[in-house]
Amino acid sequence: MNLADKKRLLREMLFARRFEERCYEAYVERKIGGFLHLYSGEEACAHGVLEASKKGHDYVITSYRDHVHAIKCGADPKKVMAELYAKETGSSKGRGGSMHIFDVEHRFMGGYALVGGPFPLAAGMAKAIKMKGGDEIVICFLGDAANNQGTFHESLNMAKLWDLPVLYVCENNLYGIGTRIDRSTAVIDQYKRVSGYNIPSAQEDGQDIEKVFKAAKKAINHVRSGKGPYFLELMTYRYRGHSMSDSNAYRSKSEERMWSNRDPIIMLRDRLIEAGELTGEDYKAMDTEVLDEIEDEVIAFAESSPEPRVDELEKYTLAENDPWVYGGGR
């Protein structure tokens, strides 16, 4: 990772942070409905791992905290925001919402609301890749609490049994909604849980993007070389509650302070300043530019976009004009 990369990543992570904070405001203004799960604090996980992957080549899937992963994969932030605004121009045409961002063109295969839902879907995509003989891999980002669903065990077993090219990234933010990990999970270190399936794994600091990148490179090389699945646990923290309806009263101020002192964006910024590659002024200018872009382009696009048409309510339920529904038209 060279200096230019680090500067770009700093801007990307800052953009992600500001994007999520702007979502918060729009939610309070009731421009965004439903559930909204924000990624602030965890930026180095998605950015570090996906920086180590082949963009537009590898497939990515995650759960409902999905805006930032989609954008890092190449989804247009304007379309992501328009989706949150429930507009026809949204990435899922306003039918999905915050938890269901999709951008198949950029191989972002979706956000899913059942926490363990993507485990087997990721293994299945990996099965398809293996059948077709490509060198793509599947990267599946899920939270620590998802590991208590049956799909975790069922999927890891099959992924190893058939040596499928899938990297499972566990973003361990220590809470399943409002329940702290030691109150829900018998084994705290998630990377240890996969040894029962003979899958290699590692645990890394999820706040330091350089460490994440390095650990992800190793993991991705393993998976791409045909050796089967890998499990990477990243220790991280979400600044907001689980969703906007979460009062976030279950965490102590001292714990929150401890994590905000290890903010992934500030850590990278300070490192660049220390190296003489960036000044505080540069950073401020970058921030202003990001804020302007979000306001002038992203929000403006979402605001001005049309709503879906009610006469298209049933569109996308089933395939349209599929000849095989009618016996192949023979």
Binding site: L121, M125, E154, S155, M158
Partner: peptide, 21 residues
């Protein structure tokens, strides 16, 4: 031949179908 993991292998099949299988 799958393990006795109905939700798991059904999901695996669905994921494979995303990519044309």
């Amino acid at each position: 031949d799958t393990p006795i993991s109905e939700n798991g292998y059904t999901g695996l099949g669905i994921g494979a179908s995303f990519l044309g299988v």
